[in-house]
Amino acid sequence: MKTVATVGGVFGIIASLLAMLFTLIDDSYTVGNFGLLGIAAGILGIVGAVLLNKKPKLAGALLIVAAAVGIYGVLLYFLVPGALMLIAAFVKMSGRRESY
């Protein structure tokens, strides 16, 4: 699950940068101003992924917050990264062991 959360964080940063790029091309800064919020959420998701094996409850909470902030920040661009982070958070917080 650490890999899924890390991929979600990296994709979140990429999605936020794309959202900012598309608003620069369109000259409307409605989503572009919140792109920095999406980048911060992506970084928070990567931090949560690093902590996932050591402190699963804290890391799960960080991933849930990162997904919520990212979806609030860049809306549609952050749905896939947010879903990846939420999946990793809920699986790790449920206490089940990975079986692979």
Rank of each mutant, 00 (worst) to 15 (best):
M1F: 06
M1I: 11
M1R: 09
K2R: 15
V4W: 07
A5K: 02
T6P: 05
T6N: 13
V7T: 14
G8H: 14
G8F: 13
G9I: 03
V10H: 01
F11E: 01
F11N: 03
G12V: 14
G12M: 13
I13L: 06
I13A: 11
A15T: 01
A15H: 08
S16V: 03
S16R: 04
S16W: 01
S16Q: 04
L18N: 07
A19D: 00
A19E: 01
M20F: 03
M20L: 12
M20I: 08
L21S: 10
L21E: 15
L21N: 10
F22C: 11
T23I: 06
T23V: 08
L24R: 08
L24N: 06
L24T: 12
L24S: 04
D26Y: 14
D26C: 09
D27L: 13
S28P: 09
S28T: 13
S28E: 14
S28L: 12
Y29Q: 04
Y29W: 09
Y29P: 02
Y29C: 03
Y29M: 02
T30F: 14
T30L: 13
V31E: 11
V31Y: 12
V31H: 01
V31D: 05
N33H: 07
N33Q: 09
N33A: 10
N33V: 13
G35P: 09
L36G: 15
L36N: 09
L36Y: 14
L36R: 06
L37F: 12
L37E: 01
L37G: 15
L37V: 06
L37S: 09
G38E: 10
G38M: 07
I39F: 00
A41P: 07
G42Y: 05
G42S: 11
I43M: 06
I46G: 05
V47N: 08
V47E: 10
V47H: 06
A49M: 10
A49L: 06
V50H: 05
L52I: 12
L52E: 07
N53R: 13
K54E: 15
K55P: 04
P56W: 03
P56E: 07
L58K: 01
A59V: 02
A61C: 00
L62H: 05
L62C: 11
L62W: 05
I64K: 00
V65I: 15
V65A: 11
V65R: 03
A67K: 08
A67E: 08
A68I: 10
V69E: 02
V69Q: 07
G70H: 09
I71K: 00
I71H: 01
Y72S: 07
Y72D: 01
Y72H: 10
Y72P: 00
G73S: 15
G73C: 05
G73E: 09
L75F: 12
L76Y: 14
L76A: 15
L76C: 04
Y77I: 00
F78G: 08
F78N: 14
L79K: 12
L79R: 15
L79N: 09
V80F: 13
V80G: 02
G82K: 00
L84H: 08
L84Y: 04
L84M: 15
M85H: 05
M85P: 04
L86P: 02
I87F: 13
A88G: 05
A89L: 00
A89D: 03
F90A: 08
V91D: 07
K92C: 00
K92G: 05
M93H: 01
G95L: 00
R96D: 04
R96E: 08
R97N: 06
R97C: 02
E98D: 10
S99G: 07
Y100G: 14
